[in-house]
Design a protein around this nucleic acid. Sequence first.
DNA 1: CCAAGAAGGACCC
DNA 2: GGCCAGGGTCCTTCTAAG
Length: 707
Amino acid sequence: MEHGSDRRAQNPELVAGPSSSNNMISRMALNDNKAGMEGLDKERINQIIFEASKDSKFFENEKKKEEQLELRIQEQQSKILKITQAQLRGAEREADKVLTLLENERNLSHTIVHVDMDAFYAAVEMRDDPSLQNKPMAVGGLGMLSTSNYLARRFGVRAAMPGFIGLKLCPDLVLVQPNFDKYTAVSKEIRQVLAQYDPNFCPMSLDEAYLDFTDHLKNRCESLPLSRMFVLQEKNTECDKTYGNKDVCLCDLNSVLRPALLCSSEFRDHGASDETLQAFLNSESSFRGFDVCSECNKIFPRYTCKVFGCSVEDAVLELRNRIEEKTHLTASAGIAPNTMLAKVCSDKNKPNGQYRIKPDKAEIMSFVLDLPIRKISGIGKVTEKLLGSIGVVTCRDLFTHRAMIFHLFSSTSFHHFMRISAGIGSTCVERDGERKSISTERTFSEISDPKLLLQKCRELCKNLSEDMKDEKTLGKTVTLKIKTVEFEVRTRSFTLPDFTNDEATLLKAAQMLLQTEITSELPRPLRLRLMGVRMSKLCSDQDSQVSVAEMFKKMDKKYQGDQILKAHPNPDFLSVQNTQSVLPKYHNICTDSDNDLCAEHCDNCDDNDEDESSIFSLPLDQTLSSEFVDHSCNKFEQESFDLNGRQKDSSSSGEVGILKFACKGSRASDGKVHVRRKGLANFLEKSQSETSETLNCEESHFGLQEN
DNA sequence: CCAAGAAGGACCC
DNA sequence: GGCCAGGGTCCTTCTAAG
């Protein structure tokens, strides 16, 4: 195995001067790890990109960033030189421990599907404007492209590329202004289909989502053939090519026609098995009388029906076909035991394809080992290069270099990398909770006149305030973001005493921040190309009170699948993951039936279960003012852990109340829940000030003195 | 001396 | 000849004040 000392000599990049033009070419280079970009003339494309960029301010800034990255790599190298062999061996043992624990965590019982629409925005535009068919096109403006169609990708034109470079690469490129309202509407249609396979699916954006197919597949095995029969339009007919054809029914045949078919006695008569039904569907007479749409009175396009089998593959194929029927757009899908792998899989057979990794460790490993780390969601340009500099390119390398990674990266990153190397990912696709921030920003041609800058700021605050009112949300921390004409980004924030979405208040804070920046730049003018305003520390408009139940929910969210807890050296932490794959929900805390708290307050344990508004769902200050407070603090140990899993002393008086409160919710617990209690303490400490303020709690609520 | 806020970045779509 | 978005999330590093 190779180590740091000889690495430097091997890696020419580390020897070359700072951001050599080679480095810059590769930094600016086309990112071709997107689907539809294989086998391009990269040399030529990169040259064009380089030429188009090299005299710009943007490029200068990129150069700066590249230099900083190289500096980081050098720091990394000198760190490596200091690591002894003994330390490496120790780290390897630590890593192996973590990997063993991760192995226990491996959960192959879920079937996760990642659905990803193919070139979504571009596909919608092409669908609605047949004149765009067979032309290279991209959605976006001269400034930036959102996505490109597959034809344009052949020229190297891709998302996140400025439009003017796209035009250089492909002079015939057609640019279409994005129409987000339309994409949102189409997305809604798609989600209607997705919801039928997993009502709790998790949309990641307009065009992609994770689904947990586990339950669907269970039911599917017992389902009737008819329930798996769907209408398909015949491909490659005139109708198919002319989506805009006014004479043909454009309705979703599975909404319009299928119910009628299912009602037909003839169909039911043949629905005993997949085979008899399919045979009937193939027969001449099957669709007689089903020619005209009852909704639009137009003639149906040529169609057939297909019975989809019970396997995962069939189920996902069915899902994709139904999306296509409904929207006339294609989707790709990845099927795997966890979200991380499913995501990679959905890219594998793009466009209009799917790929499955079976829930089998050997198969997972053979898929993962040679997978370049860059394919994994969350590993971008920088991490790729950082890891690349120590010889890590594939997921296998993550394993072989685990000792080095242990030393070079934070505990969080290390665990993350180890999970990747083992092909372990999240098996739950729960929707994200509430949003954490809301913002608006605008790029413009240079503004340096302070008056105009403040005017810009006013516009942004007005917009943001409106957005927040639409969302019925309040916020506390105002952040001003500016980007100078040199592309330097700065953020300045200010926390207000109260939650608000009031335009004037917002403006006052934002303008104050802006003014400070303008002043600090004097005597030079502050020359900006972008300004943005963000509000964070949000809470809902309705109730600025958060219930204890909400708190616990947040907890669950935060620690679900948390690798730190699970890999923590403290055996108490480990006990959780051995008993349950995810941390217990708050109502599972009360596993003890003879516990008084439990009997009183936990609707899950209480057999009578009459009390929907149990104490856990009351606003916090009410909860705390109940007698529940007083006898609740008897047990809490003073251990707590920071987010890196390091134990720390919690004797500071400010924490006491928080910690006490923390133990209340889990007082009913047995040894197992001990973990939970710590986790909760951890959470509450972390958000201490937020907690007492957000929840409008008087200090006295926390004011119980320690013993 | 320490935890929390602020600032800066990486990354995703 | 022109000249790189906007909406988020999460993580890390720095720092100032009690």
